[in-house]
Design a protein around this nucleic acid. Structure first.
Length: 366
DNA sequence: GAACAGAAAAC
DNA sequence: CCTCCTTTCTGTTC
């Protein structure tokens, strides 16, 4: 593959920034967007926090009660708001539409991130790419009143890390010439694919920085992490990533998961909740004109261990009755041979394809 | 090669 | 005290 220029546009502290836009008076306070689980008054976790809240150690994933305690200890008033996904989705859609026009091709990742291959419209020139990034930032700010951080680099991996190192409202350009000096001092945690567990494993091998990882014997990496991850680490630590920017087509799966009011192993209590989740997944499916062939259930046990069961059907379907029937069978079986108390439960459909009608529409296009 | 379950990560 | 959603990989089993 010849030289590319790839951008990663990341909408800053997205949910919290959307709320700030809706109500600018909260902008100078810690804003904490919460997923309330409904068990008790403040049970649940933080989804997103603005940068003022982050200064007090409030990050996504921590318990809401802990976030409140942190602000209380600091004697600071915070704004706690429940997530409003439809609102964020609308804003995201508008922004993604703007971004898409700058890319060739374009790849949205999640609700607040997108990769843009800008090789063509910048003629592979980094000066042009930086100018384009500024233009994009200005455009998003003018049209949607939101800031974003952009990373520009020779591939997705570098663009992503570049966007990460300076935020919010950042712009970081990494040219091939600066690749090694940019990458090698970074902690391995910055690499996509290195989370908490992998960081620990690498630390045991005395690998803390990307530079140290790049010097580590590739065969040893493969022996320890497997072929895929081992070779990925070797390449990634050298800033090499050939994965193309690709428009996302049909999703792999659609799921809904939710926390139970109380821990239980009672089938009817679980099914009552599960059927509601089925309804929601079903609604999403029909809106997108998708059918599925596989159905899964999830149980997050009291100890937070995650368990799943699944069944693949003979033929693709979108029949809600079939969905619920299968879900009930899977939960019933699970409860018989597991005896775990469920804290959270979920349902998922996968093996997705377009409906007949949608397929035809697509054919007419040609 | 497909189905299934779990782990890990990122969002 | 511990949300929610999606993807990718691995090992196992048939």
């Amino acid at each position: 593959m010849q030289a590319r220029i790839v951008m990663l546009v990341d909408l800053d502290y997205f949910y919290a920034q959307c709320e700030e836009m809706r109500k600018p008076s909260i902008k100078d306070k810690p804003v904490v967007i919460c997923v309330y689980s409904g068990r008790t008054e403040d049970s649940g976790a933080v989804s997103t926090a603005n940068y003022i809240a982050r200064k007090y150690g409030i990050h996504s994933g921590i318990p809401i009660s802990l976030a409140k305690k942190k602000l209380k200890d600091a004697k600071i008033e915070g704004i706690f708001l429940p997530v409003d996904p439809p609102f964020y989705k609308k804003i995201s859609d508008k922004i993604m539409e703007i971004l898409r026009d700058y890319a060739d091709p374009f790849e949205q990742v999640g609700i607040d991130e997108a990769y843009l291959d800008v090789t063509q419209r910048t003629k592979a020139n980094y000066i042009e790419a930086e100018g384009l990034a500024r233009k994009i930032k200005k455009n998003v700010l003018t049209k949607e009143k939101l800031t974003c951080s952009i990373g520009v680099g020779p591939n997705k991996l570098v663009a992503k890390i570049a966007a990460d190192v300076q935020k919010p409202n950042g712009l970081t350009v990494v040219r091939n010439h600066d690749l090694a000096s940019f990458m090698s001092p970074l902690p391995v945690r910055r690499l996509v694919g290195v989370g908490k567990k992998t960081e620990k494993k690498l630390e045991i091998l005395n690998i803390r920085t990307v530079g140290q990882l790049s010097k580590f014997d590739i065969q040893r990496l493969i022996d320890i992490f497997g072929k895929k991850l081992g070779t990925y680490f070797h390449n990634a630590s050298n800033g090499i990533d050939n994965t193309p920017v690709q428009e996302r087509g049909i999703p792999e799966s659609l799921s809904r998961i939710s926390t139970l009011k109380e821990n239980t192993k009672n089938l009817s209590v679980i099914l009552n909740k599960a059927y509601n989740l089925c309804d929601e997944v079903h609604a999403k499916l029909s809106k997108r004109g998708l059918v599925y062939r596989s159905i899964s259930i999830y149980v997050v046990a009291v100890d937070l261990s995650v368990h799943s069961r699944s069944k693949t059907l003979e033929n693709p379907t979108s029949n809600l009755k079939t969905f619920k029937k299968t879900v009930s069978e899977l939960f019933e079986k699970f409860l018989i041979d597991s005896d775990l108390e469920a804290r959270r439960i979920g349902v998922k459909v996968s093996n997705l394809t377009k409906t007949e009608a949608e397929q035809k529409q697509l054919m007419n296009f040609f």
